[in-house]
Design a protein around this nucleic acid. Structure first.
Lengths: 217, 217
DNA sequence: TTTTTATTTGATCAGTTAATCAAATAATAC
DNA sequence: GTATTATTTGATTAACTGATCAAATAAAAA
């Protein structure tokens, strides 16, 4: 039975619940003590189970980390895309994108730390670090952002700029807020959100229509 | 003698050379296999010395990593500040800042990877990760960037924006280029430098004078 | 030169790691 | 009910970790 389920990629109700529990414990562990010290024993302790049980439900430590990574990416992607999807114009979509990204980071700090710890530490069997591996093609968030910028240009609302570079700039400005401790101390999330959207708006808008569009929320 | 030198923070010629060699080997090791696998044994192998010799010259593994971190920060800071210092106007200083930062990353990829590995993995004895520790006050680079933006606003060349947020945005856009593999594949460093400076210039410049200043290189 | 100090090695130690596995227990099928 | 399968434990293992240290060697001082 187990084998059959495994082949279909399914698990029993109990197994699924246990896997979920282990993943949550892993998030907490990574947030608490970081990837380097996050041994199976520590994760097991956080989940109040034996170490062997982790090995029973995940073939490997890297298997666990991969499932955790997928889980974390899915949840943040869903959150952001849901909010972007409610807007219609590129300008509003872009705003929603920035605000949702920052809001998610603010409300799920623990998950973002865990995500960070994995991306900067986990490696493939060939020893390629995950941070060198993240590919645009697979990253739905980046695809969405690219599309928003592209649409805005097509519709003449956004001015001329290199879409890839602008994409990277926006992603960088969002991601940097969580990393840079000094900005967190000086500027709260709400202010940062407001100022960043203001700056980005000014940057992407077509300057020829700037005056007429500027208050156009 | 050794003790006396230690107290003054000095080492013999041989010791200094050996420490330098170990640090270089550590950079290579971190770049090759990452922080998690970068054991003293591996670093020693890369330096063609015994493991005990590292312990002789550095009190600790964290002592080694701290010296390495300082070394890496110093070198990149010197490089960037030197180039910024040659310019006079805020506008040109800002351009030089961005170009120098990106150029350093491009020409010293190995060092930047090592820097990244340390910042995202090393922890204080109280288990505080370094990436939560980096403080604006100590970071000469950030102080310089802030000053440039502030001066530009004072002189009326730059428009109104939150300096801290703009600082963070610029740092993010620079740092993201190295991290995001997809942008590296799509846009080469030269193009990215050109497009990023163009975008940032448009963003910071005082729009009231935009027309007269735009070609004002 | 001899003596003292600095440098280097490699073996060793105690601690941790991920993974394995027989045995116990719980759940489900028959 | 019994038989079978799924889940869980905790002890065990082999590999590796950072650190220590006596002994060897090289360098410097006397």
């Amino acid at each position: 039975m187990k084998e059959a389920n495994r082949e279909k990629g399914k698990h029993s109700f109990i197994a699924e619940a246990r896997r979920e529990q282990i993943i949550e414990a892993a998030i907490k562990t990574l947030d608490d003590i970081g990837y380097v010290k996050a041994s199976l024993a520590q994760i097991a302790k956080n989940a109040d189970i034996s170490t062997g049980l982790i090995s029973y439900h995940f073939s490997d430590k890297s298997d666990l980390m991969n499932h955790l990574l997928t889980n974390l990416l899915e949840r943040s992607t869903t959150y952001i895309l849901e909010r972007v999807g409610k807007e219609v114009t590129p300008q509003k979509k872009l705003n929603a994108f920035i605000l949702a990204s920052l809001a998610y980071q603010g409300t799920h700090r623990e998950r973002n730390i865990a995500l960070l710890e994995i991306i900067f530490n986990a490696r493939t069997p060939d020893n390629v670090p995950y941070y060198k591996l993240i590919d645009d093609q697979e990253d739905l968030i980046m695809i969405e952002l690219r599309q928003i910028l592209y649409d805005g240009q097509e519709q003449g609302v956004f001015g001329e700029f290199n879409v890839d570079v602008m994409c990277n700039l926006i992603q960088g400005a969002i991601g940097e807020y969580m990393l840079n401790n000094s900005i967190t101390k000086k500027v709260d999330l709400e202010t940062y959100s407001r100022e960043l959207t203001k700056i980005i708006e000014k940057t992407v808008l077509n300057s020829k229509e700037e005056n007429s569009k500027q208050d156009g929320r």
